[in-house]
Simulated scan of single mutants.
Amino acid sequence: MSVNAFGDHGPQHEKLGTVLSAIASGVEDIAQLLRSGQTSGEVGTVNSFGDKQLEVDIAADDIIFNRLKQSCAVATASSEERPKEITVGGQGYAVAFDPLDGSSIVGANFSVGAIFGVWKGDKLLGRTGEEQAAAAYAVFGSRTSLIVALPDPGATTGKTVQEYTLIHQPEGSVWKLTRDNIKITEKKVFAPANLRAAAENTTYRNLISQFILENFTLRYTGGFVPDVHHILIKGGGIFLNPVSPSAPAKLRLLYECAPLAFVVEAAGGASSNGTESILQLSITSLDLRTPISIGSKEQVQKSLGCLA
């Protein structure tokens, strides 16, 4: 993918285009890896967060690190599989990523994803999601899609959200812009994650009952990326992941929540941890986790009580 494949945003964003092109190339590599069906087993190790690692996790992680190094536009990178600020030899940006979000459902052949946050400079710790220069996520399903939130001074939020689809051709694969200026409004769709928290979190349990009584449609896959993607592409809805004493937060601010919140808010949606936008939270630790509600503004507002 060329530097300008994500649109012409001026010379000040040329290196950002290079970073996003590297991410797109990595996503294409991971799509091919998943189609091979040869990396479904556990490797018998865990990452520093205590998560079991699959062969596909490690392979996808290597792919993205290699692509970022080759770009020469990334100074620092960090992933869920290697949660350190790692110098990768370039200059311009720092990238945090989850190379395969939802890898636990790969065996069931569900859609899974990858998540990317891009910050200008060479640091990730101490930053906020609002400071991201761009964010992206990929969905690996019946087709491979890449959603990107980019600077766009002409947009209401100063950002635009685009969908690219990987098109396979005899002469090679290409990315095609398939949706531009994606927007989120209000739709009666909900994805209730960490549902076991509802056993102790009565506000969450009551909210779920309210959704049912108001004839909301349930759309939940067990994967953060595909559930948020459904909200984005269908034009509205809510994903929520509250907590309780015995069901604490699992989603990480740096690798998962901040990038997806950047995309959703750029599309006119909202995100919250119960008290403020996810984008306002300081990344004080690479392992910082947070409850999250994300999607349509009105529905996120209604969910705040079950998050705090």
Rank of each mutant, 00 (worst) to 15 (best):
P242R: 08
H229F: 09
E28W: 02
V88I: 15
I58G: 02
H230C: 09
A114F: 10
L213T: 11
C72Y: 08
L54P: 00
L253Q: 04
G295I: 07
P99Q: 08
A308F: 03
K159F: 08
L195W: 09
G295R: 10
A5L: 13
W175Y: 12
F116Q: 01
K234G: 13
A155R: 05
I233N: 10
I233S: 10
R196P: 00
F65M: 07
T284M: 04
S282W: 02
G41E: 15
G222M: 05
K297N: 07
R205W: 14
V264H: 04
G50N: 05
R196D: 05
G295S: 07
S104K: 10
F140D: 03
S285H: 11
S246G: 02
A267G: 06
R205E: 14
F190R: 08
I292W: 06
G117F: 01
A199E: 13
S145R: 13
A133I: 02
Y93F: 15
T185G: 15
W119G: 00
A267F: 10
I30G: 01
V174Y: 05
T45M: 13
A149P: 11
K176M: 12
D122M: 05
D61E: 13
E298Q: 10
E80W: 03
N181Q: 14
L124E: 00
S111H: 11
K123Y: 04
K52H: 06
E171Y: 03
P259S: 05
P245Q: 12
S285Q: 12
K159Y: 08
T217A: 14
T157A: 14
H230V: 09
W175R: 06
P99D: 05
L166H: 03
R127H: 02
E265C: 04
I30V: 15
L177I: 11
T178Y: 09
K176C: 12
L254F: 03
D180R: 11
L16A: 01
A75N: 01
I63P: 01
W175S: 10
K250V: 15
G126D: 07
F224R: 09
D101C: 05
G10T: 12
T160F: 06
R219Q: 15
D8P: 00
G223R: 02
A138Q: 02
R35H: 10
A75V: 00
P99A: 10
V46Y: 01
G269R: 04
G37T: 09
Q91Y: 14
V74A: 02
G117I: 03
T45L: 12
S282V: 14
V228W: 08
S36Y: 13
S282C: 00
D51A: 05
N194D: 04
S246R: 10
